[in-house]
């Protein structure tokens, strides 16, 4: 099963290598890893999506905890959370298909951020399901390339 771990780490050089190295070394399957600043400049938040059964996730969590610069780990898989990814997609488009593509963008609340004679670049945000659905819908037009961030997540409710 896919788990989402929200990991607070010290904002120090090398921490990404430590975390990525740990996953590679112990053979855990990282699906995505996003790291970025938080409201506190001394710490960063990593959102790690990892695939594995309960036993593996328990080991991943414990091994991560052993890294001195890892401060806190929450498995937010079961929690009410907001998950977001960002995608940029370049889709083949000419005068005859552009209109339809724009309609699709509207449905997915995506926006067109670049335009050329035979393609458009679309930007969309959302959870993984939505992004997948949009890609499926766009596929028949011809996806030239896309770039996708990993997932960032936050638990809902007051804190």
């Amino acid at each position: 099963m896919r788990h989402t771990l929200s990991v607070i780490v010290e904002n120090k050089p090398g921490i990404l290598t430590r975390v990525a190295g740990l996953f590679a070394r112990r053979g855990y399957n990282i699906e995505s890893l996003v790291v970025g600043e938080t409201e506190n400049p001394q710490v960063s938040r990593m959102t790690i999506v990892v695939d594995g059964d309960e036993k593996i996730i328990e080991q991943v969590t414990k091994q991560l905890h052993k890294l001195i610069e890892v401060i806190k780990i929450s498995d937010i898989t079961q929690e009410e959370s907001v998950h977001r990814e960002l995608i940029l997609v370049r889709v083949a488009a000419d005068a005859s298909t552009r209109g339809e593509i724009m309609q699709i963008c509207e449905i997915f609340r995506a926006s067109i951020v670049d335009l050329s004679r035979n393609s458009v670049m679309i930007q969309a945000t959302g959870d993984q399901k939505k992004i997948e659905a949009m890609l499926t819908t766009l596929r028949p037009f011809g996806i030239r390339e896309f770039a996708r961030t990993g997932r960032i997540s936050m638990v809902r409710g007051s804190k």
Partner: peptide, 8 residues
């Protein structure tokens, strides 16, 4: 003392 050893 090492939680990661337990159940590994």
């Amino acid at each position: 003392i090492d939680p990661a050893e337990i159940g590994k």
